[in-house]
Write a protein that binds this DNA or RNA. Structure first.
Ligand SMILES: [Mn+2]
Ligand SMILES: [Mn+2]
Ligand SMILES: [Zn+2]
Ligand SMILES: [Zn+2]
Lengths: 134, 134
DNA sequence: ATTTTAAATGCGACTGAGTTGCGTTTGTGA
DNA sequence: TCACAAACGCAACTCAGTCGCATTTAAAAT
C-alpha cells in the first residue's frame, strides 16, 4: 500500500504528515512522468493553495523525495526520486508531441570535451523526440 | 567594421535597419557569451521598451541571427549565430560561479540510448562547471 | 523631394510562475 | 491535553514574457 511508503518517506525526513503532503506524494507515486505545478493542481483540485504547494515541492526536493527538471518549456517539472537514485546526471526525455517529460534512468551521456580552462562538473541532457505513447 | 556586417545581416533578412536593432546587434557582436533580457537592457540603457526588445529578439531568432538558450535558470538567454552554425545541437556551458553561459562549438559527442518505443530527434546538453574566467 | 505604406515602435494591460510576510491553524511529542 | 514549532492560507509582490492598438518611421515609389 502506497500509503505506508508515503508515511515513511515523510516521517524519516522529519516532515509533518499533512493532508496535502500525503496527496502530493500520491501524485508522484502514481505517475511515471514528471509533473508541473498546473499538472499537480489539476490532480489535487482547485482548493490547494499555490504558496503551500510550492513550499511543499521545495520541501520535498530538499528532502530528496522528488527532483526538479527544467525541460526548457519555462515551467519547472518534478518527478519522484532523488536525483542520485537514477544516476547523478540522468537524462530527461521530452516528447515533442505530448510534451510529457520522462526520466531516462539508464540513458548515458559520454565524451564531452570542453575548451581549455573550463572545468566540467555536471552534465544535464534533454532529449527531444517522440515518446512510446505517441 | 561591425557596422557593415550588422547592416548586411539585417538587410539580407528583410529586416528594417532601426536604431535599436543596430544597437542590439552590436551587443551580440561584442560579446562572446549568451545574454539575457536584463543583460541586454543594461547594455542598451533604461530607455528601451520591453515589448520592442522582446519582439526584436524573436525577430532575430526567426532570422537565425541569434539563437535562444535555456540554461535552467528560468530566464532565456541569447547568443549570436544560427544554431546550425555551431552544430545542430551544440552544447552550452553554464559557469556555476558567474552564471555565464557559453556556446560550446565543438564540445559534444553524446551517446544516448533511450528505452524501446522512444524515438530521439534532438539532444540538448547543458554542462555545468567553472569557466576559464573564474 | 514628397508621398505612400507596411513594418516597427511605445505604451498599457495582462497572464503565469514563483516568492514572501504574516497571522492563524494543526500535527506531534512531552 | 497542552505547548510549540511547523505548516497553512491569504494577500501582495516581483519578474518574464505577451498582446492589442494607436503612433511613428524606414524605405520604396512617384
Ligand atoms: Mn529525472
Ligand atoms: Mn549556443
Ligand atoms: Zn508523447
Ligand atoms: Zn565563470
Amino acid at each position: 500500500m502506497e500509503y505506508v511508503i508515503g508515511d515513511d518517506l515523510l516521517q524519516q525526513q522529519g516532515l509533518k504528515r499533512t493532508k496535502l503532503r500525503m496527496a502530493l506524494l500520491d501524485c508522484f507515486l502514481n505517475t511515471k512522468h514528471a509533473l508541473s505545478y498546473p499538472d499537480i493542481k489539476q490532480m489535487l483540485g482547485e482548493g490547494v493553495d499555490r504558496s503551500t504547494l510550492y513550499r511543499n515541492l521545495a520541501a520535498f526536493e530538499e528532502a530528496d523525495i522528488i527532483h526538479r527538471i527544467y525541460d526548457q518549456s519555462g515551467v519547472a517539472k518534478y518527478a519522484f526520486g532523488k536525483v542520485h537514485d537514477h544516476g547523478r546526471d540522468h537524462a530527461h526525455f521530452v516528447c515533442e508531441q505530448c510534451e510529457t517529460v520522462y526520466c531516462m534512468e539508464k540513458a548515458t551521456t559520454v565524451d564531452i570535451n570542453v575548451p581549455k580552462g573550463f572545468k566540467t562538473k555536471t552534465i544535464q541532457t534533454i532529449i527531444r523526440g517522440i515518446c512510446s505513447d505517441c
